[in-house]
Design a protein around this nucleic acid. Structure first.
Lengths: 332, 332
DNA sequence: CTGGTGAGTGGAAGCGCTTACACAGGAAGA
DNA sequence: TCTTCCTGTGTAAGCGCTTCCACTCACCAG
């Protein structure tokens, strides 16, 4: 991988400028010359050095993405959607996981130095650093984060689907609810979900925290909740993984779902459909989130748009069997 | 992000060479000078351009990774292990998913031009291209792939655990078996698993193909299999996702697992523990696979080693309830 | 026959850094 | 006092490209 444009030029008997033009199609090149160049390229197995190209062009042709983790399908799905579109647009994707990292600031600044722009998942990065990045003029798109001046944001709708979900559960006749996986931060997705269901259910619902949004934490918190004397009739979980933990807890305690306690999730990850009982949840267009982020970033980078955009994608209530009995429905 | 080393040098009243030395700690710099430089860096918020550094150093300080997909936890886990170690070693990770891509060859060559080496998952890349990459001298580590000359390979042990699994199932008294998700390629992980169980079970086991190693395909194939007149007593699946599909199929057909049919998986993904019944499987050290790959690549790149290494990591049989009744055990 | 035009090409200046090399000046040993 | 040697610094040559600019030829209209 170390043959340079000079060797190609020498072999083809032309200047490096001509080689460059022939290869990129910029500027006129005589058909015969082009042929000679292509032949030399072929023979030497030449691939232009990305470094040289980028340095001269003044762009990296790469996008970054900062995520906390890849456990659970949410980030993986968004990431795939992002990579697919970025690749279509001729950009590579450089990843950075913040899980268990110290000096995240340095890592992100380093990342910023090797990409043209980046996608950052909400709340993976401390607020002062966000501000600094914006100030430095880094092109940014945030996913799952409320609007913020100076950068694009992209998320899925939470409030309306929270209303729909809460309404559906009340339709089952339930009266006492719990929201498992209470918001750790205000103004993020989970907070909006909580505000949404609470708006419908009012004092009939109580918030219960979990350390993280994982099966383990959901399991632990649900066990405690279900053992308590005031067991709720329905548990609305902040995401599917917490809900899977709750299902597990119910089973261990010998409780029937949805007979004794209803459980719902959020996101519609693959496992939601395969859980038993199948999980009622809110589908979030994870892949599209990633794809849209890549396009938004591209607009920012190419300068096609310079005012921040704040997009909200729609979600869909997916009713399965974990929330209650639906006589006429076929399980999917 | 566009302040250069020249501006720092001017502001600090020194030459760019001194700035470079002060920042990297190469060569002597007087304490007072260093201080002036650091002050200027601070004030201008200077971060050295990766492009400039890399071009001058002749290295990218980045690793690539080529995977088919991120659906399912396997690739995600390996990827995380890889990224973590790569990051420790001061290398970024550039990803490339081959899913649904045409012109994979071009994409990979492009990737090769922006990294110092890369991890390629077994059978994501056509064989001739592998040969070409090796010939070009690209530093490569393959994961989940048999030994191949000229590149490192890294995988987890399959044969011994296949023997253990098959032996355990026979200990339950079963006599007719099926292997679901038959190998699509020879000499890969799934093939080894198949050869392993077959070595123990001989003609008592038959191979059944699935299009892909996914829940959907497992579900479909298992449904067909379980509806057939010669239903096997135990289904050994090529991976956990296929097994989850099989569990689903059994449930839909009103069959009890493990009462009517036993099901086992492979990998021990998170969902295996949370399936009902919990899935008996073979645990594969996915994260470590990624971590080791990153270290192996580092050795190759730094030149600490120049002969290919072929590492096999050990696996562990994880017995849960989907394979049969174990009176004394507590479900985990 | 002349001037204008455009196609085709090469020279050379960057892009932002690292580092080999040269050199100045002061400390230390003879 | 004169070498020698080290510390500290600057100069400049790359690293591998892209592209501006200048230049040479046809070729054609006037």
């Amino acid at each position: 991988m170390d043959v340079t444009i000079y060797e190609v030029a020498r072999r083809a008997g032309v200047s490096i400028a001509t080689v460059s033009r022939a290869l990129r199609g910029t500027g006129p090149v005589a058909p015969k010359t082009r042929e000679k160049v292509l032949k030399a390229v072929e023979e030497l197995n030449f691939t232009p050095s990305r470094l040289g190209v980028s340095l001269a062009e003044g762009r990296h042709a790469a996008n970054g993405v900062v995520f906390p983790d890849l456990a659970g399908p949410y980030y993986a799905e968004v990431l795939l959607g992002y990579e697919e579109v970025a690749s279509e647009l001729g950009r590579s994707v450089v990843i950075l996981s913040t899980k268990g990292r110290t000096r995240v600031g340095d890592l992100i600044k380093d990342l910023a130095g090797r990409v043209d722009g980046m996608l950052i998942f909400g709340h993976t990065v401390p607020e002062p650093l966000v501000a600094e990045l914006v100030r430095l003029g880094v092109r940014l798109v945030f996913v799952s984060r409320g609007p913020l001046p100076g950068a694009d944001t992209l998320r899925s709708e939470n409030t309306a689907s929270a209303h729909a979900l809460a309404g559906h559960l009340r339709g089952h006749g339930y009266e006492r609810f719990a929201f498992l996986g209470a918001p750790l931060t205000s103004h993020d997705d989970v907070d909006e979900r909580w505000q949404g269901v609470r708006g419908v259910l009012g004092r009939a619902i109580e918030a219960v925290g979990t350390g993280h949004y994982t099966v383990e934490c959901g399991h632990e918190a649900a066990t405690k909740l279900l053992k308590g004397r005031d067991r709720p009739r329905a548990i609305i979980c902040s995401d599917d993984e917490v809900a899977l933990g709750a299902l597990l807890a119910a089973e261990e305690l010998g409780l029937d779902v949805p007979g004794d306690v209803a459980v719902t999730g959020w996101d519609d990850i693959m496992a939601a459909r395969h859980a038993r009982p199948a999980l009622t949840t809110v589908r979030q267009p994870m892949r599209e989130l990633g794809a849209r982020a890549a396009r938004a970033l591209d607009e920012l980078i190419t300068g096609a748009r310079d005012t921040p955009s704040h997009i909200v994608l729609t979600t869909e209530l997916v009713v399965r069997s974990s929330c209650g009995h639906h006589p006429q429905e076929v399980p999917t």
